[in-house]
Design a protein around this nucleic acid. Structure first.
Lengths: 195, 195
DNA sequence: ATAGCGGTACGGCACGTGCCGTATTGACAG
DNA sequence: CTGTCAATACGGCACGTGCCGTACCGCTAT
């Protein structure tokens, strides 16, 4: 069994990531130390350093391991309904306990470590954005949106205000706010556009 | 001269903040230590800790001391022009060297330190948002925007995508992108709204 | 035999807090 | 008006602490 070796390694990896999430939720990412993770996981520090180059990279992997299922879009045929369902789910997962604070801290860390930022983008942000754009494109192809509808910008207008509220004003993100953005995006900010 | 005392104190404060910005630009906020600031500023660490409770608070004050003039809106009578001019200036200041990286790092720190987040909001984000909303309200009062135009949401749709690009995708923020957002906000994402 | 492991120890760095002696200041006494 | 003095903030230094990232040591499973 050459798999037994890699199985043991995978077990260690999984135990360390699970401990990272546990401890992170308990004491917060800022106070989290690799020493403490190693101690609670019953692992040597070297075992952690062999796998991850930094605390941020460890948290990134730990969080992504939860999301292997992915935040996928339904396709009921109605673009607004599908966006609504998906974004509500994303907000619930990423902006609320237990994992919201850790996701927020991870983005904070990405401001100091370019490698974390790049990995976060490549492995989570970009795929998620691609899904949104793909769903919008399907709607456009079906005639639900104007042929000139700017898909990339629509994605940014959907995501931007949510991240703004999560990271900057740090007020609670509600489903009602998501609906307001969707409404503005597809019906406008007022009944008529004067400009 | 009871002012002489406070004058000396103000001089020290100013010297420390200036050194913070200098060192921060040279080695980056992550590697910045209060010890190093104290050493270069020719100050004792106590003198810094007496004034600021954390590295984040020190950077916040240091950056805000640059912006005493404020990022104010012109009022040419045309809302889109005024927004354009103001946001272009804000992007140039906050998303480009020399101070862009430090502003970015400050927001990162705000994800770990709630006090920094609160102070950043209270002393910069909220006032700036208020100015934007006030300028939009003036336009609405003048009939340039629909009476039902959602001012707060418009502000979020203007700011959100910019912060998203600054903090998440971390791609360069261009004036052209600002214009795209303005265009979408006031004329829609496509020539017609199908929904 | 080899590789990965838990455990321990290590040097290094920055933190935040004392303590020291000094300089400036305003209050007070002569 | 003048000399003295307590108070205050300061620069500098040293300390203990915590965590970093690395190195080494047996142990175990392959």
């Amino acid at each position: 069994m050459t798999d037994k070796r890699s199985q043991r390694a995978a077990d260690r990896t999984e135990a360390i990531m699970r401990t990272t999430l546990e401890l992170g939720q308990e004491i917060g990412y800022a106070k989290l130390s690799i020493e403490a993770v190693a101690a609670r996981a019953g692992a040597g520090k070297h075992t952690i350093y062999r796998r991850w180059p930094s605390k941020g990279a460890l948290l990134l992997d730990s969080l992504l391991s939860l999301n292997e299922a992915g935040l996928d879009y339904p396709d009921t045929g109605d673009i607004v309904t599908d966006l609504r369902v998906q974004i509500h789910a994303a907000v619930d997962l990423l902006a609320r306990p237990p994992f919201g604070p850790l996701f927020q801290a991870l983005i904070g860390e990405a401001q100091h470590e370019p490698q974390v930022a790049a990995a976060l983008n490549e492995r989570f942000i970009a795929p998620q954005a691609d899904k949104t754009v793909a769903r919008l494109r399907a709607a456009r192809d079906q005639g639900q949106l104007s042929p000139q509808f700017d898909l990339e910008l629509a994605m940014a207008i959907l995501s931007g205000p949510l991240y703004f509220q999560l990271l900057i004003t740090q007020e609670p993100l509600t489903h009602e706010y998501v609906d307001r953005i969707l409404d503005a995006l597809f019906t406008g900010l007022g009944p008529t556009h004067a400009y």
